[in-house]
Simulated scan of single mutants.
Amino acid sequence: MQYTHLGRSGLQVSRLCLGTMNFGPQTEESAAQAIMDSAHGAGINFFDTANVYGGTEHRGWTEEIIGRWFAKGGERRERTVLATKLYGTMTDRPNESKLSALNIRRALDASLKRLQTDYIDIYQFHHVDRNTPWDEIWQAIEVAVQQGKILYSGSSNLAGWHIAQAQEAATRRNYTGLISEQSIYNLLTRNVELEVIPAAQQYGLGIIPWSPLHGGLLGGVLKKERDGVRRLEGRAAETLRNHHDQIREYEDFAEELGHEPGDVALAWLLHQPAVTAPIIGPRTQEQLDAAVRALDVPLNEDALKRLDAIFPGHRTAPEDYAW
């Protein structure tokens, strides 16, 4: 396993992050715990979750599964860099969502209880809260740090100017601010290259891409359809129709390289500026094993240029739209 620092922090994390969103609703508990054990066995020390994971009828379910896994001992907690998130609505009561100081306090304590731990390594804002000032957010986070309940702060789904706003507010308070940003980022969806990645580089945030295979569209979907393994419906099927020629060319190129398409997609992300660790969300042991293979996929300059030709990206702002 390869390790790197998360953003400008001294925290070392694996170059793959285990996403746990499927644990509970799609992956039953014993299988989820086996996947987490296998992730540790492969050297993955970086796990990501959120307080709302588990579905609308059982929010917090995923954190509970992880907590029971930690409780089994064997230094499972000590070997894990744990990231969770808050923002989403947990109940229909006021002040049980978003980033008010009150919800930060309540949500953090509830996550700690479900996770059966006394601290969270990276506490992340799942979305921007336009109605809560950053000074209030940072004051609440500073208190949690002083209490020893969290070590670092991160964000998810922020725009570049949100990152700048957050970091400038933190600087005024002599606080570290954010060390990471989770964004959707893959060969098909490269909008973060416009302003989010430049902002992350400027302020020293590590990018943690979610949906690295774009819901499976970059994981060999055409081959799977030909083999009768998978058939897409709804929005995914529409996206495939709109990008059919690109994806076919991509799968053909992956075959030229001698690697599976999903491995190439993950390896490409690991070559992108500011990217720390793509989030992999395996539902099965086989999917975990496949993701780990990506670390051994070499992509030279010619291969990277070919992928850019198939899936054109963005030059950084303002160059992409100013001239």
Results as ranks from 00 to 15, higher is better:
H5K: 03
S9C: 02
N22I: 07
P25L: 09
A32T: 02
I44G: 03
A50R: 04
Y53I: 01
G60Y: 01
E63F: 05
I65W: 06
F70W: 04
K72D: 14
R76N: 08
Y87M: 04
G88D: 03
P94M: 15
E96S: 05
K98I: 09
K113F: 03
Q124W: 05
P133T: 13
E136C: 07
I141P: 03
Q147D: 13
S153N: 13
S155D: 09
S156E: 02
S156I: 01
S156A: 02
N157P: 03
G160C: 13
A164N: 00
A169V: 02
I179G: 06
E181V: 01
Y185P: 14
E193W: 04
A200S: 14
G204N: 07
W210D: 06
L217D: 06
L218I: 11
K223V: 09
R231E: 11
L232T: 09
R235A: 14
R235Y: 14
A237P: 02
L240G: 12
L240P: 10
R241H: 12
N242W: 15
N242Y: 14
D245Q: 10
I247C: 06
E251A: 08
D252L: 08
A254P: 04
G258R: 14
G258S: 10
E260Y: 11
E260L: 11
P261E: 15
L266I: 13
P282T: 02
P282D: 04
Q285R: 15
E286Q: 01
A291Y: 01
A291L: 07
R293F: 08
A294S: 10
A303H: 08
L304D: 05
L304C: 07
L307P: 10
F311H: 03
P312S: 10
A317Y: 12
A322S: 04
